[in-house]
């Protein structure tokens, strides 16, 4: 019944090392590596940091500093679907704050939170470049415009929530 935790950790470390070795020839490879790890493994675990640091010959502190600087990099698992509500000025001008409040109420989590069933992670974002068709919401990589509370409910339903 016990899971081989050290085995899983080793598998993950090998994956991360493989990604880092594959990209270390790039100029300034750290951000491309972190993006690739997150794409492949869902987030950047604390145990990934020394592996990446070792491959790039950086200190653990340097890599940790970069992971924590950028909003995009998650340090734990997120939900199956990522929902980002734009709260920048142009969307605020057409009701983004009411939509943001609706989203938190509907999902029962705050921004940065993940629903208890791990279905959705809700995040705020500041500008999706869809400023003439706001309020805008991004579901995974896809931007949706003119999102009313009812439309957000429909998008969440499509996403299985």
């Amino acid at each position: 019944m016990t899971t081989d935790v050290s085995g899983l950790t080793r598998v993950r470390a090998d994956r991360v090392r493989g990604i880092a070795v594959g990209l270390r020839h790039l100029r300034g490879p750290l951000l491309p590596i972190l993006h690739a790890v997150q794409r492949d493994l869902g987030y950047i675990d604390a145990v990934d940091v020394p592996v990446i640091a070792d491959v790039l010959n950086l200190s653990v502190a340097e890599v940790h500093g970069v992971v924590t600087f950028y909003h995009d990099f998650r340090r734990g698992p997120g939900g199956r679907v990522m929902v980002r509500v734009c709260r920048a000025e142009a969307c605020q001008a057409v009701g983004a704050e009411a939509l943001a409040e609706h989203a938190t109420r509907r999902l029962g989590v705050g921004f940065g939170g993940t629903t208890a069933d791990a279905a959705v992670t809700l995040e705020e974002t500041f500008c999706l470049g869809n400023c003439a068709l706001g309020p805008s919401v991004q579901v995974d990589e896809r931007v949706h415009g003119r999102v009313s509370p009812a439309r957000l409910d429909a998008l969440l339903a499509e996403a299985g929530r």
Binding site: L26, R27, G28, L31, P32, L34, H35, F69, Y70, H71, D72, F73, T125
Partner: peptide, 8 residues
Amino acid sequence: HVRVGAGA
């Protein structure tokens, strides 16, 4: 080459 930012 294209480099992608990370939300900053």
